[in-house]
């Protein structure tokens, strides 16, 4: 049984008089420990798919299960609890809380778990060590570089030991060198910590680090040949 299962998932938006269907009867299986990249032209539903899997949006039709839990059937508050325990989210723009230090930002998800203070400290220190930012624990986001901020974002996404981590253009706002560092870090986390990753990216090179590459177009996954003709 796959860790993430999507069955017949559809999602539509109304924009003025036009109805856009970024996802149309989509099926997807992601196995535990897999590193999947998701590509496609703008507006093809990559981020929508990510938001549906992470439970911050709901599909119009279909079901989404993660580790046997049908997230589409959970209430808003239950979904929040489920996200806290099972999902890590890496944002393109890092989305760190500016008034909290690196340590406090990483600690945020652990406050939602039933952990003692020492257990929380241990987890935060391990996560910061994994992204190489132990020496920046007391720095505020404004005192960090873009790459360091994204590494804090990654530490925050993995600190609760989630079943799956979703990353929405994690290198999208970084320069080439920093982007490479982040790619290496994501690969290492997948291989060494066996973290299941689903990453949305526009960049073919970044998508290449994943063990499986998926391409979305007009609401459907397309095969590799079609993807090549699309130039992705």
């Amino acid at each position: 049984m796959a860790l993430v299962e999507l069955r017949g998932v559809s999602k539509s938006f109304t924009k003025g008089e036009e109805t856009i269907t970024p996802l149309d009867e989509v099926d997807l299986d992601i196995q535990a420990g897999e590193f999947v990249s998701l590509m496609g032209p703008s507006g093809t539903g990559k981020s929508t798919l990510l938001n549906l899997i992470s439970g911050i949006d709901r599909p119009d039709r279909g079901t989404i299960s993660v580790d046997g839990v049908e997230v589409t059937g959970l209430s808003r508050s239950k979904l929040a609890d489920w996200r806290a325990a099972n999902l890590g989210y890496i944002f393109q723009t890092h989305n760190l809380i500016p008034v909290l230090t690196t340590y406090e930002n990483v600690e945020l998800p652990t406050l939602l778990l039933k952990l003692s203070k020492s257990q929380r400290r241990q987890r935060v220190e391990l996560a910061l060590e994994a992204v190489g930012l132990t020496d920046r624990a007391n720095h505020y986001p404004r005192q960090l570089s873009g790459g360091q901020e994204q590494r804090v974002g990654i530490a925050r996404a993995i600190v609760a030991h989630p079943k799956v981590v979703v990353a929405d253009e994690p290198t999208g706002s970084l320069d080439a060198q920093t982007s490479e560092q982040i790619q290496t870090l994501l690969q290492r986390l997948n291989r060494e910590l066996d973290i299941t990753l689903l990453m949305v990216t526009h960049d073919r090179d970044v998508a290449g680090i994943a063990s499986r590459k998926l391409v979305l177009d007009q609401g459907k996954f397309v095969d590799s040949e079609t993807a090549i003709t699309m130039g992705v």
């Binding site: 929040a80 989210y89 939602l112």
Partner: peptide, 15 residues
């Protein structure tokens, strides 16, 4: 606005 959405995405309840 984005910060509040981030907190929700992390798992904090609206309350």
């Amino acid at each position: 606005v984005r910060e509040i959405a981030t907190l929700q995405a992390i798992g904090y309840r609206r309350r």
